[in-house]
Design a protein around this nucleic acid. Structure first.
Length: 260
DNA sequence: GACCAGGATATGG
DNA sequence: CCATATCATGGT
């Protein structure tokens, strides 16, 4: 309880940001959240415009939660579209989280045809089996196929095992320097990473805000609201309509439509 | 291009 | 208790 540092925030809501399906290693507490990410472990809570935290630095918190991004401007652009306005109004404080690309990759490899509860279970077990002192295992160390399967990852275990030996932190550093299209193409060469998972990694961990992950909920929304049905057409539509802001919109849409 | 497996969890009947 | 749905991908 002691020694909470404070940051004044605006246009930010911790709860909907944490619970909007971008992050998986968190636990809800009475007043806030314990959040684990890569080798960070911190606690955060919010009361009004005050975000309080302990266990990490102010710099990390600001970068992780995108607190220096001008969300008022993003939402203003968004408000031109009456359909999107509803989604944003419902959860006006959602931010995109700036994740570690390695943990993000493993997380979304687990996500295919799964659900948030189960992904959380998978990651909890992976950290138990392969991590050291509760930190997320470093690239190259999720290296036992049998154990990965014992983490309830099912058929995804083969992908996790293969990707573990194909990437490292330097690989992701190189991706950041590429264009969005090139980074996505590179990711899709990895086993188990298709367009959806590649877009999640691009959006949540590599800073490509034009990435527009299309899952069942986003697909439903896009069909209902704009009459675009096919996954590929949806991505083209979103890129044309929203450009660099597409990823922000996706996050509002996903959370809103899922909780309908 | 359509269909299908794989597998654990939660939810609705 | 059983049926169904779930932030997909790769193989046939």
């Amino acid at each position: 309880m002691l020694l909470l540092q404070r940051i004044t925030v605006k246009d930010f809501d911790l709860a909907s940001t944490v619970e909007s399906g971008q992050l998986f290693r968190w636990q809800k507490q009475e007043n806030g959240y314990v959040i684990a990410h890569r080798d960070e472990l911190f606690y955060a809570e919010q009361k009004g415009n005050t975000l309080s935290f302990r266990g990490t630095t102010k710099k990390y918190i600001k970068n992780f939660f995108g607190l220096n991004i001008d969300y008022a401007a993003i939402k203003k652009t968004l408000a031109h579209d009456s359909i999107l306005r509803k989604a944003v109004k419902a959860y006006p404080g959602i931010h995109l989280v700036n994740q570690d690309p390695w943990e993000c990759t493993i997380s979304f490899l687990c996500s295919s045809f799964s659900n948030i509860k189960k992904i959380q279970l998978n990651l909890r077990k992976i950290v138990e089996c392969f991590g050291i002192d509760g930190a997320f295992p470093v690239p190259g160390t999720i290296d036992n196929h049998h154990t990965i399967k014992a983490c309830s990852t099912g058929y995804r275990s083969a992908y996790i095992f293969a990707v573990n030996s194909k990437v490292d932190d330097a690989y992701f550093a190189r991706l950041r320097k590429k264009s969005y299209a090139d980074a996505k193409d590179a990711l899709m060469e990895l086993p188990g990473i298709g367009p959806k998972v590649a877009d999640c990694i691009c959006l949540f961990s590599l800073g490509f805000t034009e990435a527009f992950p299309v899952d069942v909920w986003v697909q439903r929304f896009m069909q209902e609201s704009y009459g675009v049905k096919k996954e590929k057409e949806i991505r083209v539509f979103a890129a044309k309509k929203w450009g660099k802001l597409a990823g922000y919109f996706q996050q509002y849409l996903y959370h809103w439509r899922r909780l309908q």
